[in-house]
Write a protein that binds this DNA or RNA. Structure first.
Lengths: 257, 257
DNA sequence: CTTGAACCTCACGTTACGTCAGGCCGTACC
DNA sequence: GGTACGGCCTGACGTAACGTGAGGTTCAAG
């Protein structure tokens, strides 16, 4: 049976099954030297089965994020072989892209909804309405120009870098303070706790960008998963419930609720 | 100069510019008989310039919606040549698809956010986190299976058809009632108007599915455009403002606000 | 009547895989 | 310890949806 330990290895089929990619795709990435598995099975002379490590999986993620940004596979290769690249930045760029796409999907939804409505009423639909709809659709699968990429990159470095550190530094402080009130048996409706509640949502919003859908998804993740990387979510659940009471008392609603 | 009248005609370049497609793409669609322009210029012997009519534009929208659903161009041709198809249904299917994609984008955003966070903290990121992220990404550009399409289709016919008529029948009634109160000079905070306000948001929510982003986009559309197909939005604006006051008085917030 | 931009028709090139074909590996079972 | 069979291997050719010229034509403005 396949292992589940750290130091885990995946065979192509396993990796394909887990990721939703096809075996052929992984073969292809290997063939062009974009992502070659770190290991192979036995193999005295013949060629053994591909074995992918966790590091390979991490690289795969980078590859796919860059591809999602509109890079060709060749460009992805180049990018990843230049030593001066930052995986975090790739993720951030992809994130930015995904957010933009979400906005475009909303636009398209509005257009399509209007169109469906008009068609349902048997009205004469103006060509402009069709054209606007089409325009929205085509925008969706347009990629960034190099200039746009640079711009996003710059913004990410500028705002992101330092502000992220700041926000991150605030979380432990806030959580320690809340824990203290919990231990002291303070009522969630107490003004002190209310102040913490407001601080809490502002930090959450800074993290999510205030997007209700993202907030909801994130909340679901924290509710259903017991650990998120090294964070023991399960142990934090009492605090979440405490804060939910505080939110209720303060009349605060998170964007996703 | 290019016309702007009804009965308008577009040349390839114009249509391409307006839609975001390329000229080559339109040529291609013509070459394979998927979308051939209804007209051509002059042309005694040589081949004149392509002239697209409003009907061609409408067909183009259908083509692109079907393509967005994952059909190959050949399948689109087939689909559109079968006489028994319904343009409204195509739009509805596309709408459904777009909604699903939006949900997947939210999932991806949550994953990427978690990943960015983990990377920023220099923590050891588990392979699972990468794998989940990758899985989300690959799901996004997977198309529906025929069975799924059938299922959506069935649901759309069943729920959609009749309920849409109902909702549509309610709007004119509601708007007439509101207009009457406006004419009578009734205060927006008046209980009668408040009841209308609640009815109003429930109809809007039924239309948007309660999605805040979509509601916001739709609102923007109604604020920036003076007419939407045959509807004189401009003339309705006083009523919108009246209702906004009513919302404020009732403490109602639309999901997008 | 000319001129430049936009259009026309071939026709071959490209990307990112899909899809066989024919053979090898590995592990579960007897 | 043999064997069976699902999964893996390496070629190698196929494909969808255009991209990208080449070389000639059309049209609206001046």
């Amino acid at each position: 049976m396949p292992q589940t330990n750290p130091g885990q290895l995946w065979k192509v089929g396993e990796l394909a099954g887990r990721t939703g990619l096809t075996v052929r795709t992984l073969h292809h990435y290997d063939a062009i030297g974009l992502l070659s598995p770190s290991g192979r099975t036995g193999s005295a002379h013949g060629s053994g089965h591909r074995l992918y490590t966790a590091a390979d999986v991490a690289r795969l993620q980078q590859v796919l994020s860059l591809k999602a940004l509109g890079f060709s596979l060749e460009q992805v290769s180049e990018y990843l072989s230049r030593g001066d690249y930052d995986p975090r930045q790739v993720v951030r760029l992809h994130l930015e892209r995904v957010r933009a796409q979400a906005a475009e999907l909303r636009e398209i939804t509005a257009r399509l909804t209007a169109l469906a409505d008009a068609l349902d009423r048997q009205e004469v639909v103006s060509a402009d309405e069709f054209l606007n709809t089409i325009e929205g659709m085509t925008m969706l699968d347009k990629y960034y120009t190099p200039e746009q990429l640079e711009q996003i990159k710059a913004r990410g470095e500028q705002v992101g870098e330092e502000r992220i550190r700041e926000v991150e530094a605030e979380w432990p402080r806030l959580m320690a303070a809340v824990q203290a009130e919990m231990d002291a048996g303070t009522d969630p409706a107490d003004p002190k706790v209310q102040a913490f509640a407001h601080k809490w949502v502002s930090l959450v919003n800074e993290f999510t960008g205030g997007d209700p859908g993202i907030t909801a998804s994130l909340r679901k993740m924290y509710e259903t998963e017991d650990r998120i990387h090294t964070m023991d979510v399960k142990a934090m659940r009492p605090m979440f419930e405490y804060m939910n009471k505080a939110f209720a008392a303060a009349g605060i609603k998170l964007p996703g609720a």
